[in-house]
Every structure is written in C-alpha cells, then in structure tokens.
Design a protein around this nucleic acid. Structure first.
Length: 493
RNA sequence: GGCCCCAUCGUCUAAUGGUUAGGACAGCGGCUUUUCAAGCCGUUAAUCGGAGUUCGAUUCUCCGUGGGGCUACCA
C-alpha cells in the first residue's frame, strides 16, 4: 500500500453538475491509477448555502456513474469525521496554535467598518483589501477587547514582502508577489472556519497527497501554501483542473439548460457515455484511442495526459458516445432501461412488474414485444428518452397523410394497386415469418421495383418518413396488424 | 481597475526546435439501400497577432490581443 490519497471535497449546495463530475472523476481516476485511495469529505462550513439532501443525491449520482470512495462520511475511515461541521473543535485548536506561532491574528473590525473601508478603497481606485488595522494591536488592547467580549475573526498574517513560488502540477511554477495577498479570514466570528483554513487543515490531517480542485482556486493557492508553511506542514502536490465552458465559451450554469448530471440521467444518457466523454475533456491517452470504459481509465489515467486549458462542452460529442454505448448494451438490459420511458409517455402500463399492457387498447403485451421494438431502435437512439418520439406506431394506429404513401414517380392509383397486390401476397403467405425472403423473391421474379412496394408498405405500417425497415416492423407487429394497416392505407388512397 | 490562468481545424485534442501539423465529433461526398439509422470509404477545415532567440519555430522568450477566473466573516 502506498501513500497516495486524493479527495473529493464538495459543498452540499445543490446538484452535481458536469464540471463537478469531471473534477470528481479525475480525482478518482488519478487515485486509482496510482493505486491510492479516494476520500469523500463534505465541506459544509457555509451553513447559509447548504441544501437539504444534497449529500445523498451526490452520493447517489456518483454511485450511478461508478465513482466510489475508500473513506467518507457514509463509510467511515481512520481520519474522520469526514464532515467539516463535525470538526469545529479541530479547526479551533489549529487556529489557536497558529495564533501562538504568529501566523495569524485576531481582528475585531466590524463588518460595517470593513464595508466602509472597501468603499473608500474602490472610490480611490485602490484594490479593496483589508487594511490590517488589527494586525498591530498591542497585547493589552487585545486583552481588553477580549474581556469586553468583543467578537473577532482570525486572519492569516501574510508576509509583508517578497514573493511566493508555488508549483501546480499542470502549469509548473507560478510566482505571486506577497504584496498582492490579503490577510484573509481563517476563522469566522462564530467559530466556523472558512474554506481556506478548513481545507488546508483537513488535507494535512487526512494525509492527502494530491489536491485536485478547480482552477478558480489558483488565486488563493499562494495563501494556502503560506498557511502550510506557517503551520510547518509539508505542502501536498496541487493539480488545478481547468473549467468546462459552455458552447459560447462562458461558465457552465443552470441558465444554459441541462448541466446537472441528474438531468442527463433522466434524458437517457448512460453513465458509460458520461464517463468516457468527461474523461476525454481535458485528458488524452498516449495513443489515439478515444473509447474507454471506467475500468480501463482506472488503469490508464495519468497526470501527464492532463491539459491546462479550459474545454468547451460539446453535446454532439456526448451524443456520439451515448449512441455508441447504447449500441454496446445488450438487449435485455437496454429494454430494462427503456421500459420506464415507455410507461412515462403513456404507451404502456405496468400492471405488475412484467405484466404489461398497451394503455390505449388495454391489450396485454409481452416483454418480448418491447424487446423487439428496442432491438429495432437500438442503433438509432442517441439517448434513451428519444424512444418516445419514434415508436408510437407500435402502440396505436399511425396517423398520417395519404400523400406520404406515394413513392417517387408513382401515381396515387399505382400506389393503391401496389398495396393491394402486396396485401394479397402477404395474406396468402404460408409462413409469415418468411415474409422478407418471400416478398423480395416475388418482387424480383415479377420484375417489380422494391421501392414501389416497400416504401408504401413501410409508411402504411409506421406512418413515418423515417423508421426501421418494413419487414422488421411487420414481424414485430404481426400478420393481423400488418394486413389491417395495409387495408387502412389502401382505403386512404 | 489589480492579480492569476489559458490560447492548434467549428468542438475535444495529438505532435516536435526540422512532420504532407495526426486522431475523434460535427460537416460534406460516396458505397450499401425501400426511408432513417448503423457500417465502410473518401474529404473540407487549425498552430491568435507582432517582435526576438535560432540554420530552422506551432514548439523557447517578450509584448500585444482575445477568452476565463479571483478580488466576502461563499465555496
């Protein structure tokens, strides 16, 4: 066992979106590929933004895509508790220690004063920054305020001059001037730590070896490094992952439509597709291979393949992956996945588990009937929910304009005649299961053109411009339905 | 405004101080064919701009430009 440990540290403030999923995935894959552990830690230090049930939904959706943890609030571990709100005493102790070491100081400034200060700074075209008033308070002053029960926060005391060199694994060395760093708040006046304190303390105490986080944290990276140093702790490796952008190059947000993983799930995207797609967004293997299962990624993922530039999320490529994995799925499983969509769109109802019937006609149908339909659509679907727009004709008589029956170059009368001939032919078939070979042979022998008969037949059965082929549809529908629909079509002409 | 990050086909990306700048998605064309899809074959399309280093820069440096992020007692 090595000492590689990575963590996912989400705030329970809502649903997981695609960007978070990718961050989670990369952390997980990095941990697994290096033979390390992956830990879940809940960062709930902002009680105001917390959303009820967010942790459960997060756990569910991660489980659905296949991301698992070795330690976390739901399974325990040697470094718990794994929920920050249950670690308040730890942060308090560490903050006091830092106070004693001189790496931090108490600040008694009121939020009113701070607001006014920032206002003045902005007006004077100065960067808004804490003016360090309380940094130079005498011990006597502090003692007096303390006995007076004045509320205070604890701020990190940044070095006054020089620069900080930090190393990001993807970008290399980044140099910050210490003068640009603010003495930010570490511990709020209610005793709850800010992210800056809690994450550093926890990453150290939980022995995290590689910190993966979004690159929106890059500006506070030097402060974090300084904090590690002030504590006298070793700085872990940092990997700041680039953001995912929407097609217009902006930040992913719910205003742009579906960004939550849950949304993709309900629209019928498979976890395999989401995983493969996210993995290729910012990571590339050494070869040209672009199709990867989670298991393969767990072996082949690496830091070297990671890029530092932001990536635009392209749903067409996701569709490609999803179509691919839908085609890979075996028919039993696919049927299982698609059944709920058929129920939801009121085509069928489930009396008991596999006791199915067509809703409109109350006709009982078998699971095999659904399976046959799914088999026909499998190679056409880009996502599961599309099924509802393409298979209505299996559950009700199709409704269409008579003109649709007419194949190019034929007259109405010819089509009508062709359909009649075809109907007679099919009716007289000794074995309906042989309809394809029999019909094709009949057309060929009598010198007829396939399209002149098969297009009208297909439309008569489906009512659609585009659909699976007439023979496959006919076989699923059964002889009686086929003859009946042909008659309906003939009557239309 | 200040600080920081990023920059190769429309999109995701590969490559190296010397390549016909490669692959994938999308697009387009073809094959197949009763439509659609799938599959196969082919094809259009890119190194942000300007200096510098160099025999040679897409690659290294600088300056622009563009995009993004941060700038809270949020994460």
């Amino acid at each position: 066992m090595n000492n590689i440990r990575l963590r996912l540290a989400p705030s329970p403030t809502g649903f997981l979106h695609l960007g978070n999923l990718r961050t989670a995935l990369f952390g997980f894959l990095l941990a697994k590929s290096m033979g390390g552990k992956f830990i879940l830690r809940i960062e709930d230090t902002d009680q105001k933004r917390e959303v009820e049930g967010a942790v459960d939904s997060l756990l569910n959706i991660l489980k659905w895509v296949g991301i698992t943890f070795d330690e976390g609030p739901h399974i325990g571990g040697d470094y718990g508790p794994y929920i920050q709100s249950q670690r308040l005493d730890i942060y308090k102790k560490q903050a006091d220690e830092l106070l004693a070491k001189g790496g931090a100081y108490r600040c008694f400034c009121s939020s009113e004063r701070l607001a006014k200060m920032r206002e003045e700074q902005t007006a004077a075209k100065q960067p808004p920054r804490y003016d360090r008033t309380c940094r130079n308070l005498s011990p006597a002053d502090i003692e007096a305020k303390l006995t007076n029960n004045e509320p205070f926060v604890i701020r990190q005391a940044m070095p006054l001059e020089g620069e900080v060199k930090v190393i990001d694994e993807l970008r290399g060395e980044i140099i910050f001037k210490v003068a640009d760093l603010e003495d930010h708040v570490l511990l709020k006046s209610d005793g709850v730590p800010t992210y800056q304190l809690a994450s550093v303390v926890d990453d150290h105490l939980m022995k995290i070896s590689h910190v993966t986080r979004g690159d929106e944290w890059l500006p506070s990276f030097p402060k974090n490094v300084l904090l590690y140093q002030a504590f006298g702790w070793e700085v872990p490796k940092f990997i700041h992952l680039p953001l995912i952008l929407n097609k217009t190059g902006g930040k992913l947000s719910k205003r742009q439509g579906d960004v939550f993983v849950e949304d993709y799930k309900t629209r019928g995207y498979l976890p395999e597709a989401l995983i493969n797609f996210c993995a290729m967004l910012g990571w590339h293997p050494k070869t040209d291979k672009e199709i990867f299962t989670l298991a393969e990624l767990e072996k082949e993922f690496n830091i070297e393949g990671l890029g530092a530039s932001p990536a635009v999320f392209d749903e067409e490529k996701l569709d490609f992956y999803n179509g691919h994995y839908i085609r890979q799925t075996n028919i039993e499983k696919l049927t299982e996945l698609i059944l709920p969509y058929l129920v939801e769109s009121n085509f069928i109802e489930r009396i008991t588990n596999y006791d199915l019937r067509i809703k409109k006609t109350a006709k009982t149908i078998s699971l095999d009937y659904i399976k046959a339909i799914v088999a026909l659509e499998q190679e056409r679907l880009k996502n599961l929910s599309e099924i509802k727009d393409r298979v209505s004709y299996f559950f009700e008589e199709p409704d269409y304009e008579a003109d649709l029956l007419i194949w190019k170059g034929l007259s109405r009368a010819q089509v009508k005649n062709n359909l009649s001939e075809l109907k007679d032919k099919l009716e007289s078939l000794p074995d309906f299961n042989q309809l394809e070979t029999a019909t094709l042979a009949w057309l060929k022998d009598s010198g007829k053109k396939n399209g002149d008969y098969l297009w009208p037949m297909r439309v008569a059965l489906t009512g659609l411009k585009a659909s699976p082929g007439p023979f496959e549809v006919a076989l699923v529908l059964g002889k009686d339905q086929v003859i009946s629909r042909l008659k309906t079509a003939i009557a239309k002409l």
